[in-house]
Design a protein around this nucleic acid. Structure first.
Lengths: 164, 164
DNA sequence: TGAATGAGTGCACAATCTGCCTAGTGCTCC
DNA sequence: GGAGCACTAGGCAGATTGTGCACTCATTCA
């Protein structure tokens, strides 16, 4: 999917906003709230899903509620001869690793991890260090998250296609 | 919500996994797939929602699909006399800022931002630097994301309460 | 200009699902 | 021996979904 730029119009944005705020809403209810026909909502959703704008409707699980109160960002240098992917693959096998990015700068990979406690974080980091190809890690603990992940403002701000 | 540790059992985990893979499923269909009564699924979902394990069912929107192909992590030092929150509040007003954390280490805040292009990233960073209280920023661009954000392995791995 | 196309509206129908309730069962805890 | 809790198995009325279909409107294009 190479930069498959897509545009959304105002109705799309309003639909996403509505569903974000009240996810339990059915298609019919959405159409009522937005003042359009049911078929339109259905079509818009389908289109956004297969254009990749909406990637899913999965339940959002809170690691913290499961006892994983510690979040940290671990950057690492890796042995680069073998490339990034083998390392990323092995990192992906660690459940506490929630995401992995390859990055610019001094380090090669950046990943977000969670742990149950600071002591537990040590265990997780040890597992990461154990990964073949990882040379050195540097951890930053997230003490607080004043702005949790959100996309809504962005959606509201996207340059719009013309349309209702 | 101070460390309101919660446990899930195997059925909960299977339910989350099922819904993650096929989010469109209704309660009834879930009950069939999991081999339990409909009321049970309903009760489990309700419980997980109000215990905060499941925080929502919102549509997952892909910034990349909207043309925001560049992701970066921007760490920053701030003037600490006023505290973190005022700065975080102002950062929250920038749509391209997707999340903000206060962190340990040399910097004070870490945020994830997206932009349409590298040039556009400059614009976003400029907006961040303009934020009152921000002294200096350091940006790291995410070149690739071999492991996109996921929680499923964690859910599958959580220490389980006894139960079906 | 006129045909074709795409998007949206309204409407309808059968099939399905949801919310809610009842009753019975097995378990654990006091 | 209760009391409380979670789960199962049904039942019921009402709402919703998936799917068609016909019609309108705006845009594109030859």
């Amino acid at each position: 999917m190479l930069c498959s730029m897509t545009t959304i119009d105002d109705l799309d944005a309003r639909l996403i906003a509505l569903l974000t705020k009240e996810p339990r809403l059915g298609v019919l209810e959405c159409s009522r709230r937005l003042g359009v026909a049911r078929g339109t909502v259905q079509a818009r959703l389908d289109r956004m899903v297969d254009r990749g704008v909406i990637t899913g409707f999965g339940p959002d699980v809170s690691p913290a509620a499961l006892g994983y109160d510690v979040t940290a960002f671990v950057s690492m240098e890796i042995r680069q001869v073998a490339g990034h992917d083998p390392v990323a693959d092995r990192l992906a096998r660690i459940p506490e690793v929630l995401e992995v990015h390859t990055i610019t700068g001094d380090s090669d990979l950046l990943c977000r991890v969670v742990a149950r406690t600071n002591a537990d974080l040590q265990r997780v980091i040890d597992r990461i260090v154990d990964v073949q190809g990882v040379l050195r890690t540097n951890s930053i603990i997230a003490l607080d998250t004043p702005v949790p992940y959100r996309v809504l403002p962005l959606v509201a701000d996207v340059p719009r296609r013309e349309g209702r």
